[in-house]
């Protein structure tokens, strides 16, 4: 019984494998070279763990938000693996993976969304995992939702790209920050394992992505109105 997780939503490639109660995880800075590196590195990881492809019982992947192209490579690979091996697939929020990876209980997860925007979501650690406060969204850094209470830990690349703007916006509500943390496969795996156990894995053809930025082009009549 082994489970695999992958995340390709940033310039990192992150893989994690759980097998016989232990987890092996690796991360590499690959820039935009996920396509050429993911499957060969997965092959090496399986060999390192002594796990055959047929031992895999489920595939988890970072389902966004993040780099559109990176996300689709990860989702496409998860689909291909899940369908080819006939095992269920689970997509996990990259923002929730940030929360999972931090040591904090109150997490203000924030990823650089490019185009002067950020992806944000807030999570509270509960008895049954993370509880999302409000909704994940994409917005300008100076317009992120401000929590009502204090003690939040800011996590993710949004805090390195827009640290000053976010510090001003969030003020005393922010207790600490981990700007260097990125979504890791080991955290995707940690969030997915109980879901696989609960039978929440889905057929590979249902594996989908969350982009948050859904307006990517103007329709003809919208361009005309400009």
């Amino acid at each position: 019984m082994a489970y695999l997780a992958l995340d390709t939503s940033t310039e990192h490639l992150s893989l994690a494998l759980s097998h016989k109660g232990s987890v092996i995880a690796h991360d590499w800075h690959v820039g935009q070279r996920h396509a050429e590196q993911t499957l060969p590195r997965l092959e090496a990881l399986l060999a390192e763990a002594g796990v055959a492809r047929a031992d895999l019982q489920g595939i988890a992947f970072g389902m966004g938000p993040g780099s559109f192209t990176g996300l689709r490579i990860g989702c496409g690979i998860a689909q291909g693996l899940g369908f080819g091996l006939n095992v269920p697939v689970i997509g996990v929020s990259t923002l929730e993976a940030l929360a999972q990876g931090s040591g904090a209980d109150k997490v203000f997860a924030c990823l650089d969304a490019r185009m002067q925007q950020v992806y944000v979501a807030r999570y509270l650690r509960g008895n049954d995992g993370w509880q999302e406060v409000g909704e994940a969204l994409v917005c300008n850094p100076d317009a992120v939702p401000v929590p009502e209470d204090a003690g939040w830990t800011g996590v993710g690349s949004g805090f390195s790209a827009y640290g000053d703007v976010l510090a001003t916006r969030l003020g005393q509500h922010l207790a600490a920050s981990e700007p260097a943390r990125f979504p890791l496969a080991r955290d995707v795996l940690a969030l997915a394992l109980p879901r696989f156990a609960a039978g929440l894995g889905r057929p590979a053809d249902e594996a989908t992505l969350v982009y948050l930025r859904d307006k990517v082009a103007l329709k003809t009549h919208e361009r005309a109105a400009k």
Binding site: L39, R53, R72, G76, I77, Q79, F83
Partner: peptide
């Protein structure tokens, strides 16, 4: 289109990997 090509390429290669 690079992004569109990558979708087919990703699924195809992962299928090949899974099926050996």
């Amino acid at each position: 289109l690079a992004g569109a090509l990558l979708v087919g390429a990703s699924v195809a290669n992962a299928l090949g990997f899974a099926l050996q």
